[in-house]
Amino acid sequence: MHDTPPSPAGTAADPQRQRWMAVLARADAAAIAARLETLTPPPPHRRLRGPEAGLVMVRGRLGGDGAPFNLGEMTVTRCTVQLEGGAVGHAYVAGRDARKAELAALLDALLQDPARREVLLATVIEPLAAAQAAAAAREARRAAATRVEFLTMVTTR
């Protein structure tokens, strides 16, 4: 089996990192790869774990806001890579796309380097985020077009 990768124990939640991991998780492998191609090739990395497919049990809440319950599982692929320089990147992404998980882990490692972060955010993360936001906005506009005003027939005497 796989060794447990080096753990940055006690890592505090980093909103910026959470955001790029979320954007990468929602993107597909081809879109991430296409963005990466526009950059100078990243330094070599080695896989510390995976990519490997597994399951995450998705939970809901009783009544939507009460105690948790187990709704059902979903497939998830995880990957951990290490750059030659030393940074370790992680990815947990829905589905079974090994290439996507590895690309996301690689980017997570690269983005932790302050020297590269700005360029990567501007050329990879922000364009992906913008495409996702545009798709979400289009769905919201489609939903808005189905807004219905029900009229009640009231007879007044």
Binding site: S7, G10, R26, M74, R78, T80, H90, V93, G95
Partner: peptide, 15 residues
């Protein structure tokens, strides 16, 4: 999902 190696929640996708 909160990966044990990170210790904080990350979004793994939308369903």
């Amino acid at each position: 999902f909160t990966p044990p190696e990170l210790g904080f929640p990350v979004q793994i996708g939308e369903i």
